[in-house]
Amino acid sequence: MKAAMKYLPRLAPESWRVVYAIVAAIVLFLIGEAVHPGFLGLANVETILVIASFVGLVAAGQCFVILIGGIDLSVPWVLNAGAIVLATTSMGLDARAPLAVAATLGLGIAVGAVNGAGVAWFGIPAVVMTLAMNGIIEGLVLGFTGGFTCAACSAYAPPVVQSLAHGALLGVPDALWLWVVVIVLVSAVLSITRFGRATYALGNNPRAAVLAGVDARGLTIMLYAASGFFAALAGIMLVGFGGQASLGMGDPYLFTSIAAVVIGGVNILGGRGHYLGVAAGAVSLTVLVSVLLALNMPDYVRSIAYGVVILALLLAYGRETET
Protein backbone atom coordinates (compact mmCIF):
# COMPACT_ATOMS: atom_id res chain seq x y z
CA MET A 1 0.00 0.00 0.00
CA LYS A 2 2.79 2.40 0.93
CA ALA A 3 4.59 1.55 -2.29
CA ALA A 4 1.48 2.39 -4.29
CA MET A 5 0.91 5.65 -2.40
CA LYS A 6 4.27 7.07 -3.43
CA TYR A 7 3.20 7.00 -7.08
CA LEU A 8 0.14 9.16 -6.39
CA PRO A 9 0.52 12.85 -7.23
CA ARG A 10 1.68 15.00 -4.34
CA LEU A 11 -1.29 17.23 -3.65
CA ALA A 12 -2.00 19.52 -0.74
CA PRO A 13 -4.61 18.22 1.74
CA GLU A 14 -7.06 20.85 0.43
CA SER A 15 -6.67 19.53 -3.12
CA TRP A 16 -7.17 15.94 -1.97
CA ARG A 17 -10.42 17.00 -0.32
CA VAL A 18 -11.68 18.21 -3.68
CA VAL A 19 -10.73 14.86 -5.17
CA TYR A 20 -12.57 13.04 -2.37
CA ALA A 21 -15.72 15.09 -2.98
CA ILE A 22 -15.64 14.37 -6.72
CA VAL A 23 -15.03 10.66 -6.13
CA ALA A 24 -17.90 10.58 -3.62
CA ALA A 25 -20.27 12.04 -6.22
CA ILE A 26 -19.20 9.45 -8.80
CA VAL A 27 -19.53 6.57 -6.34
CA LEU A 28 -23.02 7.71 -5.32
CA PHE A 29 -24.08 7.85 -8.96
CA LEU A 30 -22.85 4.26 -9.40
CA ILE A 31 -24.67 3.15 -6.25
CA GLY A 32 -27.81 4.77 -7.59
CA GLU A 33 -27.51 2.81 -10.83
CA ALA A 34 -26.95 -0.40 -8.87
CA VAL A 35 -30.05 0.00 -6.70
CA HIS A 36 -32.22 1.50 -9.41
CA PRO A 37 -31.30 0.60 -13.01
CA GLY A 38 -31.70 3.61 -15.26
CA PHE A 39 -30.49 5.99 -12.55
CA LEU A 40 -27.63 7.04 -14.82
CA GLY A 41 -29.99 7.85 -17.67
CA LEU A 42 -29.28 11.22 -19.26
CA ALA A 43 -32.60 12.78 -18.26
CA ASN A 44 -32.24 11.70 -14.63
CA VAL A 45 -28.63 12.87 -14.40
CA GLU A 46 -29.58 16.26 -15.87
CA THR A 47 -32.40 16.63 -13.35
CA ILE A 48 -30.09 15.79 -10.45
CA LEU A 49 -27.46 18.27 -11.62
CA VAL A 50 -30.04 21.04 -12.08
CA ILE A 51 -31.34 20.49 -8.54
CA ALA A 52 -27.74 20.39 -7.29
CA SER A 53 -27.10 23.73 -9.00
CA PHE A 54 -29.57 25.44 -6.64
CA VAL A 55 -27.69 24.06 -3.64
CA GLY A 56 -24.42 25.01 -5.31
CA LEU A 57 -25.47 28.64 -5.77
CA VAL A 58 -26.36 29.08 -2.11
CA ALA A 59 -23.22 27.17 -1.11
CA ALA A 60 -21.07 29.58 -3.15
CA GLY A 61 -21.97 32.39 -0.78
CA GLN A 62 -21.72 30.11 2.24
CA CYS A 63 -18.24 29.10 1.07
CA PHE A 64 -17.08 32.73 1.02
CA VAL A 65 -18.09 33.42 4.62
CA ILE A 66 -16.96 30.06 6.00
CA LEU A 67 -13.52 30.67 4.49
CA ILE A 68 -13.11 33.52 7.00
CA GLY A 69 -14.48 31.45 9.86
CA GLY A 70 -18.01 32.85 9.60
CA ILE A 71 -21.39 31.40 8.68
CA ASP A 72 -24.59 32.74 7.14
CA LEU A 73 -27.80 31.48 8.76
CA SER A 74 -29.93 34.10 7.01
CA VAL A 75 -29.89 32.40 3.60
CA PRO A 76 -33.31 30.70 3.95
CA TRP A 77 -35.28 33.92 4.15
CA VAL A 78 -32.96 35.94 1.93
CA LEU A 79 -33.66 33.31 -0.72
CA ASN A 80 -37.39 33.27 0.10
CA ALA A 81 -37.65 37.05 0.15
CA GLY A 82 -35.77 37.26 -3.13
CA ALA A 83 -38.21 34.86 -4.78
CA ILE A 84 -41.17 36.86 -3.50
CA VAL A 85 -39.66 40.18 -4.60
CA LEU A 86 -39.06 38.77 -8.08
CA ALA A 87 -42.62 37.50 -8.42
CA THR A 88 -44.37 40.53 -6.96
CA THR A 89 -42.21 43.07 -8.78
CA SER A 90 -42.37 41.46 -12.21
CA MET A 91 -46.03 40.32 -12.02
CA GLY A 92 -45.15 37.71 -14.63
CA LEU A 93 -44.18 40.28 -17.29
CA ASP A 94 -40.93 40.04 -19.24
CA ALA A 95 -40.85 43.82 -19.57
CA ARG A 96 -40.54 44.12 -15.79
CA ALA A 97 -38.10 41.22 -15.42
CA PRO A 98 -34.86 43.32 -15.50
CA LEU A 99 -36.15 45.59 -12.72
CA ALA A 100 -37.35 42.60 -10.71
CA VAL A 101 -34.02 40.76 -11.05
CA ALA A 102 -32.07 43.89 -10.09
CA ALA A 103 -34.31 44.47 -7.06
CA THR A 104 -33.94 40.86 -5.97
CA LEU A 105 -30.16 40.81 -6.25
CA GLY A 106 -29.97 44.24 -4.63
CA LEU A 107 -31.98 42.95 -1.69
CA GLY A 108 -29.62 40.03 -1.26
CA ILE A 109 -26.54 42.23 -1.40
CA ALA A 110 -28.02 44.75 1.04
CA VAL A 111 -28.99 42.12 3.61
CA GLY A 112 -25.61 40.46 3.29
CA ALA A 113 -23.82 43.78 3.74
CA VAL A 114 -25.80 44.46 6.91
CA ASN A 115 -24.82 41.03 8.19
CA GLY A 116 -21.19 41.77 7.41
CA ALA A 117 -21.35 45.17 9.07
CA GLY A 118 -22.80 43.66 12.23
CA VAL A 119 -20.03 41.08 12.35
CA ALA A 120 -17.16 43.37 11.31
CA TRP A 121 -18.01 46.69 12.93
CA PHE A 122 -20.00 45.73 16.00
CA GLY A 123 -18.36 42.41 16.80
CA ILE A 124 -21.62 40.47 16.83
CA PRO A 125 -20.94 36.73 16.42
CA ALA A 126 -21.84 35.60 12.92
CA VAL A 127 -24.23 32.93 14.23
CA VAL A 128 -26.18 35.49 16.26
CA MET A 129 -26.13 38.23 13.61
CA THR A 130 -27.25 36.11 10.69
CA LEU A 131 -29.80 34.14 12.67
CA ALA A 132 -31.35 37.38 13.93
CA MET A 133 -31.37 38.75 10.38
CA ASN A 134 -33.12 35.62 9.16
CA GLY A 135 -35.88 36.25 11.69
CA ILE A 136 -36.11 39.92 10.77
CA ILE A 137 -36.44 39.19 7.05
CA GLU A 138 -39.05 36.53 7.75
CA GLY A 139 -41.07 38.98 9.81
CA LEU A 140 -40.81 41.73 7.21
CA VAL A 141 -41.89 39.39 4.41
CA LEU A 142 -44.87 38.11 6.36
CA GLY A 143 -45.81 41.64 7.38
CA PHE A 144 -45.59 43.21 3.92
CA THR A 145 -47.40 40.32 2.24
CA GLY A 146 -50.06 39.94 4.91
CA GLY A 147 -48.96 36.42 5.65
CA PHE A 148 -48.48 35.75 1.95
CA THR A 149 -52.11 36.59 1.20
CA CYS A 150 -51.51 39.62 -1.05
CA ALA A 151 -52.86 39.51 -4.60
CA ALA A 152 -49.40 39.86 -6.13
CA CYS A 153 -48.00 36.97 -4.08
CA SER A 154 -49.51 34.44 -6.46
CA ALA A 155 -47.91 36.04 -9.52
CA TYR A 156 -45.88 33.78 -11.79
CA ALA A 157 -42.25 34.28 -12.70
CA PRO A 158 -41.71 36.06 -16.04
CA PRO A 159 -41.38 33.68 -18.99
CA VAL A 160 -37.77 34.77 -19.54
CA VAL A 161 -36.88 33.68 -15.99
CA GLN A 162 -38.76 30.40 -16.40
CA SER A 163 -36.92 29.74 -19.65
CA LEU A 164 -33.60 30.27 -17.86
CA ALA A 165 -34.58 27.60 -15.34
CA HIS A 166 -36.05 25.17 -17.89
CA GLY A 167 -34.36 26.03 -21.19
CA ALA A 168 -31.33 24.40 -22.76
CA LEU A 169 -28.37 25.44 -24.89
CA LEU A 170 -26.53 22.84 -26.97
CA GLY A 171 -28.52 20.17 -25.17
CA VAL A 172 -27.37 21.32 -21.72
CA PRO A 173 -29.88 22.96 -19.34
CA ASP A 174 -29.41 26.71 -19.00
CA ALA A 175 -29.36 26.34 -15.21
CA LEU A 176 -26.24 24.19 -15.53
CA TRP A 177 -24.58 26.71 -17.83
CA LEU A 178 -25.21 29.37 -15.20
CA TRP A 179 -23.72 27.14 -12.51
CA VAL A 180 -20.67 26.40 -14.65
CA VAL A 181 -20.11 30.14 -15.03
CA VAL A 182 -20.41 30.56 -11.25
CA ILE A 183 -17.99 27.68 -10.63
CA VAL A 184 -15.41 29.18 -13.00
CA LEU A 185 -15.78 32.73 -11.65
CA VAL A 186 -15.77 31.83 -7.95
CA SER A 187 -12.85 29.42 -8.40
CA ALA A 188 -10.89 32.05 -10.33
CA VAL A 189 -11.64 34.76 -7.78
CA LEU A 190 -10.46 32.59 -4.90
CA SER A 191 -7.44 31.15 -6.70
CA ILE A 192 -5.81 33.92 -8.71
CA THR A 193 -7.03 37.29 -7.44
CA ARG A 194 -5.83 39.52 -4.64
CA PHE A 195 -9.35 39.36 -3.23
CA GLY A 196 -9.10 35.58 -2.96
CA ARG A 197 -5.65 35.67 -1.36
CA ALA A 198 -6.91 38.21 1.17
CA THR A 199 -9.88 35.97 1.95
CA TYR A 200 -7.67 32.98 2.70
CA ALA A 201 -5.28 35.17 4.70
CA LEU A 202 -8.11 36.55 6.84
CA GLY A 203 -9.43 33.06 7.45
CA ASN A 204 -6.02 31.66 8.38
CA ASN A 205 -4.79 34.42 10.67
CA PRO A 206 -6.86 37.61 11.03
CA ARG A 207 -4.19 39.50 12.95
CA ALA A 208 -1.45 38.69 10.42
CA ALA A 209 -3.79 39.58 7.55
CA VAL A 210 -4.49 43.01 9.04
CA LEU A 211 -0.78 43.60 9.59
CA ALA A 212 -0.22 42.66 5.94
CA GLY A 213 -2.61 45.40 4.84
CA VAL A 214 -5.90 43.52 4.46
CA ASP A 215 -8.98 45.64 5.18
CA ALA A 216 -10.60 43.02 7.40
CA ARG A 217 -13.83 44.93 7.99
CA GLY A 218 -14.36 45.87 4.37
CA LEU A 219 -13.54 42.37 3.17
CA THR A 220 -15.92 40.80 5.70
CA ILE A 221 -18.76 43.04 4.54
CA MET A 222 -18.05 42.18 0.90
CA LEU A 223 -18.02 38.43 1.60
CA TYR A 224 -21.33 38.52 3.44
CA ALA A 225 -22.76 40.68 0.66
CA ALA A 226 -21.64 37.98 -1.78
CA SER A 227 -23.44 35.38 0.32
CA GLY A 228 -26.64 37.44 0.14
CA PHE A 229 -26.19 37.86 -3.61
CA PHE A 230 -25.93 34.12 -4.23
CA ALA A 231 -28.89 33.35 -1.95
CA ALA A 232 -31.00 35.86 -3.90
CA LEU A 233 -29.75 34.42 -7.21
CA ALA A 234 -30.82 30.96 -6.06
CA GLY A 235 -34.21 32.44 -5.20
CA ILE A 236 -34.55 33.74 -8.76
CA MET A 237 -33.68 30.35 -10.22
CA LEU A 238 -36.01 28.50 -7.86
CA VAL A 239 -39.00 30.70 -8.58
CA GLY A 240 -38.26 30.28 -12.28
CA PHE A 241 -38.03 26.53 -11.86
CA GLY A 242 -41.24 26.22 -9.85
CA GLY A 243 -43.12 29.05 -11.53
CA GLN A 244 -44.20 30.76 -8.31
CA ALA A 245 -42.80 31.79 -4.96
CA SER A 246 -43.93 30.05 -1.77
CA LEU A 247 -43.32 30.42 1.93
CA GLY A 248 -40.56 28.22 3.29
CA MET A 249 -38.96 27.53 -0.07
CA GLY A 250 -35.57 28.58 1.28
CA ASP A 251 -35.62 26.45 4.43
CA PRO A 252 -33.99 23.30 2.94
CA TYR A 253 -31.02 25.30 1.67
CA LEU A 254 -29.54 26.29 5.01
CA PHE A 255 -28.45 22.83 6.06
CA THR A 256 -27.63 21.62 2.56
CA SER A 257 -25.49 24.64 1.73
CA ILE A 258 -23.42 24.18 4.88
CA ALA A 259 -23.24 20.42 4.30
CA ALA A 260 -22.03 20.96 0.72
CA VAL A 261 -19.27 23.24 1.98
CA VAL A 262 -18.16 20.70 4.59
CA ILE A 263 -18.33 17.76 2.18
CA GLY A 264 -16.38 19.82 -0.33
CA GLY A 265 -13.47 20.02 2.09
CA VAL A 266 -13.68 23.66 3.19
CA ASN A 267 -12.31 24.04 6.70
CA ILE A 268 -15.25 25.01 8.90
CA LEU A 269 -12.88 27.22 10.91
CA GLY A 270 -11.78 29.09 7.80
CA GLY A 271 -8.66 29.57 5.73
CA ARG A 272 -8.72 26.46 3.55
CA GLY A 273 -10.86 24.99 0.81
CA HIS A 274 -11.94 25.33 -2.82
CA TYR A 275 -15.31 26.00 -4.40
CA LEU A 276 -14.77 23.17 -6.89
CA GLY A 277 -15.00 20.77 -3.97
CA VAL A 278 -18.12 22.56 -2.72
CA ALA A 279 -19.75 22.08 -6.13
CA ALA A 280 -18.92 18.38 -5.98
CA GLY A 281 -20.33 18.31 -2.45
CA ALA A 282 -23.61 19.81 -3.69
CA VAL A 283 -23.83 17.10 -6.34
CA SER A 284 -23.01 14.39 -3.78
CA LEU A 285 -25.77 15.56 -1.45
CA THR A 286 -28.33 15.68 -4.24
CA VAL A 287 -27.37 12.23 -5.51
CA LEU A 288 -27.53 10.89 -1.95
CA VAL A 289 -31.09 12.18 -1.57
CA SER A 290 -32.03 10.72 -4.96
CA VAL A 291 -30.63 7.31 -3.98
CA LEU A 292 -32.54 7.38 -0.70
CA LEU A 293 -35.71 8.28 -2.57
CA ALA A 294 -35.08 5.43 -5.01
CA LEU A 295 -34.90 3.13 -1.98
CA ASN A 296 -38.17 4.60 -0.65
CA MET A 297 -36.44 5.81 2.50
CA PRO A 298 -38.47 8.20 4.71
CA ASP A 299 -37.45 11.82 5.24
CA TYR A 300 -35.94 11.22 8.65
CA VAL A 301 -33.41 8.82 7.13
CA ARG A 302 -32.25 11.62 4.83
CA SER A 303 -31.66 13.90 7.82
CA ILE A 304 -29.75 11.17 9.63
CA ALA A 305 -27.65 10.53 6.51
CA TYR A 306 -26.78 14.23 6.24
CA GLY A 307 -25.64 14.34 9.85
CA VAL A 308 -23.64 11.13 9.65
CA VAL A 309 -21.86 12.24 6.47
CA ILE A 310 -20.93 15.62 7.92
CA LEU A 311 -19.66 14.18 11.21
CA ALA A 312 -17.71 11.45 9.43
CA LEU A 313 -16.00 13.94 7.14
CA LEU A 314 -15.20 16.35 9.95
CA LEU A 315 -13.63 13.49 11.90
CA ALA A 316 -11.68 12.36 8.83
CA TYR A 317 -10.45 15.87 8.03
CA GLY A 318 -9.54 16.44 11.67
CA ARG A 319 -7.41 13.29 11.72
CA GLU A 320 -5.88 14.35 8.43
CA THR A 321 -4.59 17.59 9.94
CA GLU A 322 -3.09 15.73 12.90
CA THR A 323 -1.01 13.40 10.70
Results as ranks from 00 to 15, higher is better:
G248N: 14
A231F: 08
I221N: 06
R197G: 05
G250I: 06
G213F: 04
I221G: 01
V214P: 08
G235F: 08
A208P: 13
G218P: 02
A208S: 14
Q244W: 06
L202Y: 10
P206A: 14
D215Q: 09
L233C: 09
L202H: 12
A245R: 12
F230E: 08
G248L: 03
L223G: 07
D251H: 12
A231N: 09
M237Q: 02
P206V: 04
I236T: 00
G213R: 04
D251M: 12
L238N: 13
A209Y: 06
L233N: 02
A201H: 05
G218R: 07
A231I: 11
G240K: 08
G240M: 09
T220C: 12
G218F: 01
G240H: 09
L219W: 00
R217W: 06
G242D: 11
V210H: 12
L223Y: 00
Y200K: 01
R207S: 15
G235E: 12
F229V: 05
G203V: 00
F229W: 10
R217Q: 07
F230M: 12
M237D: 02
N205L: 01
A198G: 10
T199L: 07
G228N: 04
F229M: 06
S246T: 12
A231W: 13
A226Q: 03
M222W: 10
I221H: 11
L247K: 15
A232I: 10
D251A: 15
R207N: 14
Y224K: 01
F229C: 10
G243Y: 07
A245I: 06
D251F: 14
R207E: 15
A212T: 08
A225D: 06
G240N: 11
V210S: 15
L211I: 10
M222H: 05
F229E: 09
A209K: 05
D251T: 15
Y200C: 00
L219D: 02
N204F: 02
L247Q: 15
G235D: 08
A208V: 09
N205F: 05
S246F: 08
